[in-house]
Protein backbone atom coordinates (compact mmCIF):
# COMPACT_ATOMS: atom_id res chain seq x y z
CA UNK A 1 0.00 0.00 0.00
CA UNK A 2 1.28 3.44 -0.84
CA UNK A 3 2.58 5.41 2.11
CA UNK A 4 0.39 8.23 0.88
CA UNK A 5 -2.76 6.35 1.81
CA UNK A 6 -2.44 6.72 5.52
CA UNK A 7 -1.23 9.65 7.51
CA UNK A 8 -0.69 10.00 11.21
CA UNK A 9 0.58 12.59 13.61
CA UNK A 10 -0.50 14.90 16.38
CA UNK A 11 -2.73 17.89 15.75
CA UNK A 12 -2.85 21.62 16.33
CA UNK A 13 -5.81 23.95 15.87
CA UNK A 14 -5.14 27.39 14.40
CA UNK A 15 -8.35 29.38 14.65
CA UNK A 16 -9.67 31.75 12.01
CA UNK A 17 -11.70 32.04 8.83
CA UNK A 18 -10.16 33.53 5.68
CA UNK A 19 -6.58 33.04 6.87
CA UNK A 20 -4.71 34.46 3.89
CA UNK A 21 -1.31 33.55 2.54
CA UNK A 22 0.06 36.94 3.64
CA UNK A 23 -0.59 35.81 7.21
CA UNK A 24 0.80 32.32 6.61
CA UNK A 25 4.00 33.83 5.25
CA UNK A 26 4.44 37.63 5.34
CA UNK A 27 5.71 39.18 2.11
CA UNK A 28 9.13 40.12 3.39
CA UNK A 29 10.01 36.41 3.65
CA UNK A 30 9.32 35.95 -0.05
CA UNK A 31 12.73 37.33 -0.75
CA UNK A 32 14.39 34.02 -1.45
CA UNK A 33 15.55 32.04 -4.44
CA UNK A 34 14.80 28.64 -2.86
CA UNK A 35 12.09 27.61 -0.40
CA UNK A 36 14.49 25.90 2.01
CA UNK A 37 14.55 28.48 4.81
CA UNK A 38 10.83 29.20 5.06
CA UNK A 39 9.81 26.91 7.96
CA UNK A 40 10.70 29.23 10.85
CA UNK A 41 8.90 32.15 9.15
CA UNK A 42 5.51 30.40 9.18
CA UNK A 43 2.80 32.72 10.62
CA UNK A 44 5.67 34.93 11.70
CA UNK A 45 3.76 38.11 12.51
CA UNK A 46 1.17 36.14 14.48
CA UNK A 47 3.84 34.24 16.41
CA UNK A 48 6.36 37.01 17.08
CA UNK A 49 6.17 40.69 17.97
CA UNK A 50 8.17 43.44 16.31
CA UNK A 51 11.14 42.63 18.56
CA UNK A 52 11.02 38.99 17.37
CA UNK A 53 9.82 37.85 20.79
CA UNK A 54 7.27 35.02 20.85
CA UNK A 55 3.69 36.11 21.46
CA UNK A 56 2.55 32.72 22.75
CA UNK A 57 0.96 31.47 19.51
CA UNK A 58 -0.57 28.01 19.62
CA UNK A 59 2.10 26.72 17.19
CA UNK A 60 4.73 27.60 19.78
CA UNK A 61 2.86 25.94 22.63
CA UNK A 62 5.14 23.12 23.83
CA UNK A 63 2.13 20.78 24.09
CA UNK A 64 1.63 21.04 20.33
CA UNK A 65 5.27 21.06 19.28
CA UNK A 66 5.87 18.60 16.46
CA UNK A 67 2.21 18.47 15.44
CA UNK A 68 1.82 17.59 11.78
CA UNK A 69 -1.95 17.88 11.28
CA UNK A 70 -3.20 21.44 11.10
CA UNK A 71 -6.88 21.99 11.82
CA UNK A 72 -8.34 25.37 10.94
CA UNK A 73 -11.65 27.02 9.96
CA UNK A 74 -12.95 28.10 6.53
CA UNK A 75 -11.42 29.52 3.32
CA UNK A 76 -7.88 28.70 4.42
CA UNK A 77 -5.07 29.96 2.17
CA UNK A 78 -6.95 32.73 0.38
CA UNK A 79 -5.15 35.64 -1.25
CA UNK A 80 -1.82 35.47 -2.98
CA UNK A 81 -0.87 32.40 -5.05
CA UNK A 82 2.53 32.27 -3.37
CA UNK A 83 3.67 28.66 -3.04
CA UNK A 84 5.82 30.01 -0.24
CA UNK A 85 2.74 29.49 2.00
CA UNK A 86 2.36 25.69 1.61
CA UNK A 87 6.13 25.39 1.42
CA UNK A 88 6.47 27.16 4.79
CA UNK A 89 3.79 24.91 6.30
CA UNK A 90 5.51 21.81 4.96
CA UNK A 91 8.99 22.90 6.03
CA UNK A 92 7.58 23.71 9.49
CA UNK A 93 6.41 20.10 9.71
CA UNK A 94 2.74 20.24 8.70
CA UNK A 95 1.74 17.25 6.56
CA UNK A 96 -2.05 17.42 6.46
CA UNK A 97 -4.50 20.34 6.65
CA UNK A 98 -8.13 20.04 7.71
CA UNK A 99 -10.56 22.92 7.09
CA UNK A 100 -14.13 23.67 6.12
CA UNK A 101 -12.91 24.97 2.78
CA UNK A 102 -9.72 25.98 1.00
CA UNK A 103 -8.84 28.69 -1.48
CA UNK A 104 -8.26 26.99 -4.81
CA UNK A 105 -4.76 27.99 -5.80
CA UNK A 106 -3.54 27.16 -2.31
CA UNK A 107 -5.30 23.79 -2.48
CA UNK A 108 -3.61 23.00 -5.79
CA UNK A 109 -0.22 24.02 -4.46
CA UNK A 110 -0.62 21.78 -1.40
CA UNK A 111 -1.64 18.80 -3.49
CA UNK A 112 1.37 19.14 -5.78
CA UNK A 113 3.61 19.22 -2.72
CA UNK A 114 2.01 16.06 -1.34
CA UNK A 115 0.05 17.72 1.47
CA UNK A 116 -3.55 16.46 1.54
CA UNK A 117 -6.23 19.08 2.19
CA UNK A 118 -9.21 17.49 3.95
CA UNK A 119 -12.59 19.16 4.01
CA UNK A 120 -15.15 18.82 6.79
CA UNK A 121 -18.55 20.42 7.40
CA UNK A 122 -18.58 23.14 10.05
CA UNK A 123 -20.08 21.15 12.88
CA UNK A 124 -17.78 18.15 12.68
CA UNK A 125 -14.78 20.36 12.03
CA UNK A 126 -15.59 22.36 15.14
CA UNK A 127 -15.94 19.20 17.21
CA UNK A 128 -12.60 17.98 15.89
CA UNK A 129 -10.94 21.32 16.67
CA UNK A 130 -12.23 21.03 20.24
CA UNK A 131 -10.79 17.53 20.57
CA UNK A 132 -7.44 18.66 19.23
CA UNK A 133 -7.29 21.44 21.81
CA UNK A 134 -8.09 19.00 24.61
CA UNK A 135 -5.86 16.17 23.41
CA UNK A 136 -2.53 17.56 22.27
CA UNK A 137 -0.94 14.13 22.71
CA UNK A 138 -3.48 12.15 20.71
CA UNK A 139 -2.51 10.83 17.30
CA UNK A 140 -4.51 11.19 14.11
CA UNK A 141 -5.04 8.13 11.97
CA UNK A 142 -6.07 9.29 8.54
CA UNK A 143 -7.27 6.93 5.84
CA UNK A 144 -7.34 8.72 2.51
CA UNK A 145 -8.82 5.78 0.64
CA UNK A 146 -11.86 5.57 2.93
CA UNK A 147 -11.96 9.34 3.62
CA UNK A 148 -12.20 8.73 7.34
CA UNK A 149 -10.03 9.63 10.27
CA UNK A 150 -9.79 8.62 13.86
CA UNK A 151 -8.75 11.04 16.57
CA UNK A 152 -9.04 10.65 20.34
CA UNK A 153 -11.17 7.52 19.84
CA UNK A 154 -13.67 9.32 17.67
CA UNK A 155 -14.16 8.74 14.01
CA UNK A 156 -14.85 11.46 11.45
CA UNK A 157 -15.61 11.41 7.75
CA UNK A 158 -13.97 13.99 5.52
CA UNK A 159 -14.18 15.08 1.92
CA UNK A 160 -11.44 15.51 -0.64
CA UNK A 161 -11.43 16.90 -4.13
CA UNK A 162 -11.71 13.75 -6.23
CA UNK A 163 -8.71 14.49 -8.44
CA UNK A 164 -6.59 15.16 -5.36
CA UNK A 165 -7.73 11.96 -3.65
CA UNK A 166 -6.99 10.03 -6.82
CA UNK A 167 -3.57 11.67 -6.97
CA UNK A 168 -2.72 10.54 -3.45
CA UNK A 169 -4.13 7.05 -4.02
CA UNK A 170 -1.90 6.55 -7.03
CA UNK A 171 1.02 8.42 -5.46
CA UNK A 172 1.00 10.73 -8.48
CA UNK A 173 0.32 14.02 -6.77
CA UNK A 174 3.07 15.72 -8.72
CA UNK A 175 1.75 15.82 -12.30
CA UNK A 176 4.97 16.83 -14.05
CA UNK A 177 6.07 13.41 -15.33
CA UNK A 178 2.65 12.72 -16.74
CA UNK A 179 2.46 16.16 -18.34
CA UNK A 180 5.75 15.48 -20.08
CA UNK A 181 4.45 12.22 -21.55
CA UNK A 182 2.09 14.08 -23.83
CA UNK A 183 4.78 15.76 -25.98
CA UNK A 184 3.14 14.94 -29.29
CA UNK A 185 -0.33 15.90 -28.21
CA UNK A 186 1.09 19.15 -26.80
CA UNK A 187 2.84 19.91 -30.06
CA UNK A 188 -0.26 19.34 -32.12
CA UNK A 189 -2.29 21.72 -29.93
CA UNK A 190 0.54 24.25 -30.12
CA UNK A 191 0.60 23.97 -33.89
CA UNK A 192 -3.16 24.26 -34.22
CA UNK A 193 -3.06 27.46 -32.15
CA UNK A 194 0.00 28.84 -33.95
CA UNK A 195 2.32 28.68 -30.96
CA UNK A 196 4.71 25.96 -32.08
CA UNK A 197 7.74 28.20 -32.42
CA UNK A 198 10.59 27.00 -30.21
CA UNK A 199 14.21 28.04 -30.15
Amino acid sequence: MSEQLNRSGRGVYVQGNDIDTDRIIPARFLKCVTFDELGPALFYDERFDSDDLPKGHILDNPAHRGASVLVTDANFGCGSSREHAPQALQKFGIEVIIAESFAEIFHGNCTTLGMPCLVMPAEQRRALAGLVQQNPDAEFLIDIEQCTLIFANQSFAFGMKESAREAFLTGRFDPLNELLLGQEAIRSVAEKLGYAETV
Binding site: R82, P86, N109, L176, L179, I186
Partner: peptide
Protein backbone atom coordinates in the same frame (compact mmCIF):
# COMPACT_ATOMS: atom_id res chain seq x y z
CA UNK B 1 -0.53 29.42 -10.27
CA UNK B 2 2.01 28.23 -7.71
CA UNK B 3 5.71 27.82 -8.28
CA UNK B 4 5.51 24.06 -8.91
CA UNK B 5 3.04 24.82 -11.67
CA UNK B 6 5.35 27.51 -13.04
CA UNK B 7 7.84 24.66 -13.26
CA UNK B 8 5.23 22.50 -15.06
CA UNK B 9 4.51 25.24 -17.58
CA UNK B 10 8.18 25.92 -18.22
CA UNK B 11 8.86 22.22 -18.74
CA UNK B 12 5.77 21.30 -20.76
CA UNK B 13 3.86 24.50 -21.62
Amino acid sequence: IGTSQVRDVLASQ
